[in-house]
Amino acid sequence: RKWEEIAERLREEFNINPEEAREAVEKAGGNEEEARRIVKKRL
């Protein structure tokens, strides 16, 4: 699934746990840019 690939990239890029990465992607509706913004806000 594409969402899992996005979550994996976010996890590696921001050094967050898989659960946090998945939550961000879900919140963003699968949009990678939006997920990235969500993760950055949390850091």
Rank of each mutant, 00 (worst) to 15 (best):
R1I: 14
R1H: 14
R1K: 15
R1P: 15
R1Y: 08
R1S: 15
K2Y: 12
K2I: 14
K2E: 13
K2M: 15
K2Q: 13
K2L: 14
K2D: 13
K2W: 13
W3M: 10
W3H: 09
W3F: 11
W3P: 06
W3Y: 10
W3D: 06
W3I: 08
W3V: 07
E4P: 06
E4L: 08
E4T: 06
E4V: 06
E4F: 06
E5G: 04
E5I: 05
E5V: 05
E5P: 05
E5Q: 07
E5S: 04
E5M: 04
E5H: 04
E5R: 03
I6Y: 03
I6K: 03
I6C: 04
I6S: 03
I6V: 09
I6P: 01
A7E: 08
A7P: 01
A7R: 04
A7W: 07
A7L: 08
A7D: 02
A7T: 08
E8M: 13
E8Q: 15
E8I: 12
E8G: 09
E8W: 04
R9T: 07
R9M: 09
L10S: 00
L10K: 00
L10Q: 00
L10H: 00
L10R: 00
L10N: 00
L10W: 01
R11A: 15
R11D: 03
E12H: 10
E12F: 09
E12K: 12
E12Y: 10
E12M: 11
E12Q: 12
E13W: 04
E13R: 03
E13N: 03
E13D: 12
E13S: 04
E13Y: 05
E13V: 04
E13M: 05
F14P: 01
F14T: 03
F14G: 02
F14R: 01
F14W: 03
F14D: 02
F14M: 07
N15P: 11
N15I: 05
N15L: 09
N15D: 14
N15H: 13
N15G: 14
N15K: 09
N15Q: 14
N15M: 10
I16W: 01
I16G: 02
I16Y: 02
I16V: 10
I16L: 10
I16N: 02
I16E: 02
I16A: 04
N17D: 14
N17Q: 12
P18H: 13
P18S: 13
P18I: 15
P18R: 10
P18M: 15
P18Q: 14
P18N: 12
P18L: 15
P18F: 15
E19L: 09
E19S: 10
E19Y: 06
E19A: 11
E19N: 11
E19W: 09
E19T: 11
E19C: 06
E19R: 08
E19F: 08
E19V: 11
E20T: 10
E20V: 12
E20N: 05
E20Q: 10
A21K: 00
A21S: 07
A21L: 04
A21T: 03
R22G: 06
R22C: 05
R22S: 09
R22L: 15
R22T: 09
R22D: 07
E23C: 03
E23P: 01
E23T: 11
E23H: 11
E23V: 11
E23N: 11
E23D: 14
A24N: 01
A24R: 01
A24M: 06
A24L: 07
A24D: 03
A24Q: 02
V25I: 11
V25C: 03
V25Y: 03
V25E: 01
V25N: 01
V25A: 05
V25L: 10
V25G: 01
E26F: 06
E26N: 12
E26P: 00
E26H: 12
K27P: 00
K27W: 08
K27S: 11
K27C: 04
K27A: 13
K27N: 10
A28E: 01
A28T: 06
A28K: 01
A28W: 00
A28F: 01
A28I: 01
G29W: 10
G29V: 11
G29M: 14
G30V: 02
G30R: 02
G30I: 02
G30S: 02
G30N: 03
N31D: 14
N31W: 07
N31P: 00
E32N: 04
E32K: 04
E32M: 12
E32L: 12
E32T: 05
E33D: 13
E33F: 09
E33M: 11
E33N: 10
E33A: 12
E34K: 09
E34I: 12
E34F: 05
E34A: 09
E34T: 09
E34G: 07
E34S: 07
E34M: 10
A35Q: 00
A35S: 05
A35D: 00
A35C: 02
A35G: 02
A35W: 00
R36D: 01
R36E: 05
R36M: 06
R36I: 10
R36Q: 06
R36H: 05
R36L: 05
R37Y: 02
R37T: 10
R37F: 03
R37C: 08
R37I: 12
R37S: 11
R37D: 12
R37N: 14
I38V: 09
I38A: 09
I38Q: 08
I38F: 02
I38S: 07
I38H: 06
V39G: 01
V39M: 04
V39N: 01
V39F: 01
V39E: 02
K40V: 14
K40N: 08
K40F: 03
K40E: 15
K40A: 13
K40W: 03
K40M: 07
K41S: 14
K41D: 14
K41M: 07
K41L: 07
K41W: 03
K41T: 13
R42A: 15
R42C: 04
R42Q: 14
R42I: 15
R42Y: 11
R42N: 14
R42K: 12
R42G: 12
R42L: 14
L43N: 07
L43E: 07
L43I: 13
L43T: 08
L43S: 07
L43K: 08
